[in-house]
Design a binder for these strands. Structure first.
Length: 558
RNA sequence: UGGGGCGUAGCCAAGCGGUAAGGCAACGGGUUUUGAUCCCGUGAUUCGCAGGUUCGAUCCCUGCCGCCCCAGCCA
């Protein structure tokens, strides 16, 4: 793990920040994380969050959380609340009050009028369709709107009446007067204000006109004294407009925009549009479904915030677009959990094992390490008795030599308990194995043979008489495609079995009392945490991630 | 055919004219009361391609090729 838990140590943006500081271009670093509250945060946002908060922390500056709430038709208080909860959970040092673009609606309105007064903006009566037609195409220049040369006084009067609600939604817009022939389409008289009669989560009904992103963003940056306005590559084309507005308005700060590539990850989608579709069409249980790449989904699944930050820190900021292997995130999750998780035993697909030479009714208590990685974690007591549950996968008839687990006549270690040898396999009428009979070697108490003989396999187990039952939910990737976003219809690449629910799993007694938010390791299986659906009467565990399984991988290769 | 970007191992990348870091993945081997963890080892005569400048180029220049973004009153 790198020293810097918020982001990479070096990249072209930090280089720039450093030189701006050294050359006196700026005195203080001020960044911002500017989500639009129209969805939940996902792992891609974490990249931007760690970048912005990380840079502020590294250079002794500050970073604002600012909601880009300029389009009430898509935005909602639910998202504002969720975003703040996620940001808090991520623990990136956000400790200030959230800011809102809407805090500045009055100032923005005044600046729009200033543009009109300077002859740099005008009210256009063209319809949306006409505006598009007049805009031209990628290869042909646009044409000036017939309303482009209105008198300043008329523009001012019209714009005031727009605000006063004298006109229908969509009937008029305010546009910047730049250049309809510009190669950059963003400069072909971009719309600055539109009429939308939709109540705003913050300002309610006080406005019926709202500034566009282009008009609000840079100016809000200036108001907040942002020194480095960091955004993703698709805004590169907007930078000339960002600069034009800053240059043509009496702002007191000179923010600069820098663009970096957004995060893409294999086997998932990271666009708000697609994630929203998954939620709205019910393909997942909600934004916090543990299969979702959302921050709330990862959290519910048991992924530590530290693992998310570590993942981002290994990414590195650049301008080339690529897709990060999901295995990178998985590695960070395992790495983080391996160091901190308590070890426990749980049997997911139980098979009864009866130890014939073990006294009926006898119970022994074994001490088992809580975490072999960390001796200070201590030990816990695990009850053992004549009848235990083992994993069905840990028994195989006609097992090949490479199979180190149980088979008729073979001896294995029961973790922390004894060596047992399988003496009989009991099947039902259909031939399915329903029970194993074994003998144990009393000399191997503590799971070590005094004669020094070795066994290749160590099995986890749960005493049948002491087992706690639980439901366990296993998650695997939502998509079958490595790049579902590239599919014609990404919904069609959804896997049908990304959630597997196992009932009646057998857990060691300690697992009845796992704290909310704690992630434990079920030995040999993976990391698990309780789901919010869980209660003391009906335990429900989520598998955060499985342990690496080179044996399964080798088997799959055959 | 307009404008803006990007091209270094399977993936993410460092490199800023002096002779190719690191991480993930993969593959070997060792340790192991988790087939986990941990440890050790294995990769680019080459940086999209072709020219040019230079004693010397992944880094500079030119020309190609490939990929991404832009024609919302979304952000």
């Amino acid at each position: 793990m790198k020293e810097n838990i918020l982001g990479s140590v070096n990249d072209f943006i930090r280089d720039r920040v450093r030189s701006d500081l050294e050359e006196g271009e700026i005195n203080t670093v001020v960044t911002r994380f500017p989500p639009e509250p129209n969805g939940y945060l996902h792992i891609g946002h974490a990249k931007s969050i760690c970048l912005n908060f990380g840079i502020a922390a590294e250079f002794g500056g500050i970073c604002n959380l600012r909601f880009d709430d300029t389009n009430p038709v898509k935005e909602d208080q639910e998202f504002i609340d969720a975003i703040q909860a996620d940001l808090q959970w991520l623990s990136v040092g956000w400790d200030r009050q959230a800011k809102y673009a809407s805090d500045n609606f009055e100032q923005l309105f005044a600046w729009a009028k200033r543009l009109i007064e300077d002859g740099k903006a005008y009210v256009d009566d063209l319809t949306a369709v006409e505006i598009r037609e007049y805009r031209g195409t990628l290869t042909e220049p646009g044409r000036n709107s017939p309303y482009r040369d209105r008198e300043i006084e008329e523009n001012l009067a019209l714009f005031n009446r727009m605000r006063d609600g004298d006109f229908e939604d969509g009937s008029r817009v305010l546009r910047a007067k730049i250049d309809m022939a510009a190669g950059n389409i963003n400069l072909r008289d971009p719309v600055l204000y539109r009429i939308v009669r939709v109540p705003h989560p913050r300002t309610g009904d006080s406005w019926c006109i709202y500034p566009t992103y282009d008009f609000a963003h840079g100016q809000t940056d200036a108001i907040e004294g942002i020194s480095h306005s960091l955004c993703t590559l698709e805004f590169e084309d907007h930078r000339p407009l960002y600069d034009w507005l800053i240059d043509n308005l009496p702002v007191t700060a000179r923010p600069r925009q820098y663009e970096f590539s957004r995060l893409n990850m294999s086997y998932t989608v990271l666009s708000k549009r697609r994630l929203t579709q998954l939620v709205e069409e019910g393909h997942v249980s909600g934004w916090d479904d543990p299969r979702m790449p959302t921050i709330s989904g990862l959290r519910r699944r048991g992924v530590p915030a530290l693992a998310v930050r570590d993942f981002i820190s290994r990414l590195s900021i650049s301008k080339s677009e690529g897709t990060v292997d999901a295995a990178m995130l998985e590695h960070c999750i395992r790495d983080s959990l391996n160091q901190t998780s308590m070890r426990r035993m749980a049997v997911l697909r139980p098979l009864k094992l009866v130890i014939e030479n073990y006294p009926e009714g006898q119970v022994e208590e074994f001490q088992s390490a809580n975490n072999p990685q960390d001796e200070s974690a201590g030990t816990r007591v695990v009850p053992f008795s004549r009848e235990i549950w083992i994993e069905r996968d840990d028994f195989m008839e006609d097992a090949p030599k490479k199979f180190f687990r149980l088979s008729l006549g073979r001896e294995v270690r029961l973790r922390s308990a004894y060596f047992v040898t399988c003496t009989e396999v009991i099947k039902d009428a259909s031939g399915e194995v329903i029970e194993l009979r074994c003998t144990y070697d009393p000399e191997t108490r503590g799971a070590n043979a005094p004669d020094g003989r070795k066994v290749k396999g160590t099995l986890h187990w749960v005493s049948a008489a002491h087992a706690v039952e639980a439901e366990v939910r296993l998650y695997s990737p939502l998509f079958a495609d490595e790049n579902p976003g590239a599919a014609e219809n990404f919904i069609s690449t959804l896997r049908s079995n990304s959630l597997e629910v196992l009932k009646s799993c057998k857990l060691e007694p300690m697992l009845a009392e796992v704290a909310d938010g704690e992630v434990v390791q079920f030995e040999r299986l993976g990391y698990f945490c309780t789901d919010p659906d869980s209660s003391s009467r009906a335990l429900v565990f989520n598998r955060t991630i499985g342990l690496r399984d080179t044996f399964a991988k080798a088997m799959a290769k055959r």
